[in-house]
Amino acid sequence: MSTPALLEIWNLSASYGRAQVLFGLTFELRAGEVLALVGRNGAGKTTTLKAIMGLVSATAQKATFKGHSLARLPTYKIARLGLGYVPEDRRIFTDLTVDENLEAGRKAAGPGRSPWTPERLFQLFPNLAEMRGRRGNQMSGGEQQMLTIARTLMGNPDAILLDEPSEGIAPVIVQTMAEAIRAMKAEGVAVLLSEQNWAFAAGISDRAIVIERGEMRFQGSMAELMADERLRADTLGV
């Protein structure tokens, strides 16, 4: 093991009412890596992220972040451990301005880290710098997506769960998104990236997990997954 595991998940299962949607997922997210979580629509990617954040009821044999158990922790305490979450539907606070959205996400940085500030984030997302006083409901989808990521970074997380950042936004902004993820990685932030856009995920991820109908089909390096054309065709259709 070169890098220690930041987030360790053993046998994660989750249900909506009587319908079980996740069946014993086991994986780890290592410090500073980008891990892609790929699979078809409805495979359980979003549920996996929500289950980790305690937003859907789930069971796991073991779920730890930086050695702290996540079991039965309320969502806000999970977030305070240094785990950021960016939901898929761009849930920015539309009544709040860009600056206020960032303020809502602000948390103190851990020792020895240089904290994210609005100014640093605006270097990452230059579009946002020009609309600091604008309300969320007057922003485009891509701008909102950048703002959700920037808002989560304001909490100085050690890892981010990123749900479908490329969905429904213009191709040019997808490029910005990819650069932002690389920049986060360069800052030492680990990313668990749930993606449908295979090319996007393949371009920026170190390792990948493939899930299908709530079950794990593959876990390994991105290079291995690239090489296994049959598995990709079978589970992802690419």
Binding site: M53, L55, P74, T75, Y76, A79, R80, Y85, P87, R91, F93, T94, D95, L96, E100, N101, E103, A104, G105, R106, K107, R151, T152, G155
Partner: peptide, 23 residues
Amino acid sequence: RFGVLVRAATQDREMIAALGINQ
């Protein structure tokens, strides 16, 4: 800051929790 958080919580309580704020 209290006001920002209150207005944010008015809109989306779940997201406020995901940002590490004790609602």
